[in-house]
Amino acid sequence: MKLLDTLTGGYASLIVYGLAALAVAAVLAWTYHLGSTHTAAVWSLKYDQREVAIQKATNAEISRQAQANAMAKAAEAQRLAALEAENAALEQLIKEKSDEADADPDRDRVCLSGDAGLRIDSIH
C-alpha cells in the first residue's frame, strides 16, 4: 500500500475506496437490473395469462350464444310447424262447416237454424 501511495502521490486510499465504491455500485446496479427483469417477466406472464383467460371466456360466451340461438331457432321451427298444423286443421274444419252450411236445407232462412248455430259454435 505504501508503494501505491508513493506512486499516486498519497491518493492510494482514495483510489482503493473509490474502486470499492464502484464495485458496490456495480453489484447494486446488477442486482437492480436482475430484479427489474424478473419483475417484467412476472408481469408479462400475468398479462399473457389474463389475455388467455379473456379469450377463453369470450370463446365460451360466443359458443353459449350460438347454442342458445340454435335452440331458439329449433323451438321456433317446432312452434311454427305446430301453428301450421293447427291452422290447416282449422281451415279443414271451416271447409267442412262451410260444406255443411251449403248442404243445409234451411240455409236461406232469415234467421239461423239450430244446426247453423251449432256449426258457428263449433268453430270457436
Results as ranks from 00 to 15, higher is better:
residue 1 M to K: 12
residue 2 K to F: 02
residue 3 L to D: 08
residue 4 L to M: 12
residue 4 L to V: 02
residue 5 D to R: 08
residue 5 D to H: 04
residue 6 T to H: 05
residue 6 T to P: 03
residue 7 L to G: 00
residue 8 T to F: 06
residue 8 T to Y: 00
residue 9 G to P: 03
residue 10 G to F: 02
residue 11 Y to A: 11
residue 12 A to F: 01
residue 15 I to W: 05
residue 15 I to G: 02
residue 16 V to M: 09
residue 16 V to S: 14
residue 16 V to F: 14
residue 19 L to F: 15
residue 20 A to D: 02
residue 21 A to I: 13
residue 21 A to R: 14
residue 21 A to E: 11
residue 24 V to A: 06
residue 24 V to L: 03
residue 25 A to M: 06
residue 26 A to Q: 09
residue 27 V to Q: 13
residue 27 V to M: 10
residue 27 V to D: 12
residue 28 L to N: 05
residue 31 T to C: 00
residue 33 H to V: 11
residue 33 H to T: 07
residue 33 H to M: 00
residue 36 S to D: 12
residue 36 S to W: 15
residue 38 H to I: 06
residue 39 T to N: 13
residue 39 T to A: 15
residue 39 T to E: 08
residue 39 T to M: 06
residue 41 A to N: 03
residue 41 A to F: 05
residue 43 W to F: 12
residue 43 W to A: 02
residue 43 W to C: 04
residue 44 S to A: 10
residue 47 Y to G: 04
residue 47 Y to I: 07
residue 50 R to Y: 12
residue 50 R to V: 00
residue 51 E to D: 07
residue 53 A to W: 02
residue 54 I to F: 04
residue 55 Q to V: 05
residue 56 K to S: 00
residue 57 A to D: 01
residue 57 A to Y: 06
residue 58 T to L: 05
residue 59 N to C: 03
residue 59 N to Y: 05
residue 59 N to W: 01
residue 59 N to T: 09
residue 59 N to S: 00
residue 59 N to F: 10
residue 61 E to V: 13
residue 62 I to N: 04
residue 63 S to P: 10
residue 63 S to R: 15
residue 65 Q to D: 12
residue 65 Q to M: 12
residue 66 A to S: 01
residue 67 Q to M: 10
residue 68 A to G: 11
residue 69 N to Y: 10
residue 69 N to V: 08
residue 71 M to D: 15
residue 73 K to E: 15
residue 74 A to G: 08
residue 75 A to H: 15
residue 75 A to V: 01
residue 75 A to R: 14
residue 75 A to P: 12
residue 79 R to C: 09
residue 80 L to K: 02
residue 80 L to F: 12
residue 81 A to V: 09
residue 81 A to Y: 11
residue 81 A to S: 06
residue 83 L to S: 09
residue 83 L to T: 05
residue 84 E to V: 08
residue 85 A to F: 07
residue 86 E to C: 07
residue 87 N to A: 15
residue 88 A to Y: 07
residue 89 A to Y: 08
residue 89 A to D: 10
residue 90 L to A: 10
residue 90 L to G: 01
residue 91 E to T: 04
residue 91 E to L: 13
residue 91 E to N: 12
residue 92 Q to A: 14
residue 93 L to E: 04
residue 93 L to C: 06
residue 94 I to F: 13
residue 94 I to R: 15
residue 96 E to N: 13
residue 96 E to D: 15
residue 96 E to G: 08
residue 97 K to M: 15
residue 97 K to I: 09
residue 98 S to H: 13
residue 98 S to D: 13
residue 99 D to Y: 06
residue 102 D to A: 13
residue 103 A to W: 07
residue 104 D to L: 00
residue 106 D to H: 07
residue 108 D to M: 04
residue 109 R to E: 14
residue 114 G to D: 09
residue 115 D to F: 12
residue 116 A to Y: 01
residue 116 A to D: 05
residue 116 A to L: 06
residue 116 A to N: 03
residue 117 G to Q: 09
residue 117 G to K: 07
residue 118 L to T: 00
residue 118 L to F: 07
residue 120 I to V: 10
residue 122 S to W: 06
residue 122 S to C: 00
residue 122 S to H: 07
residue 123 I to P: 09
residue 123 I to M: 01
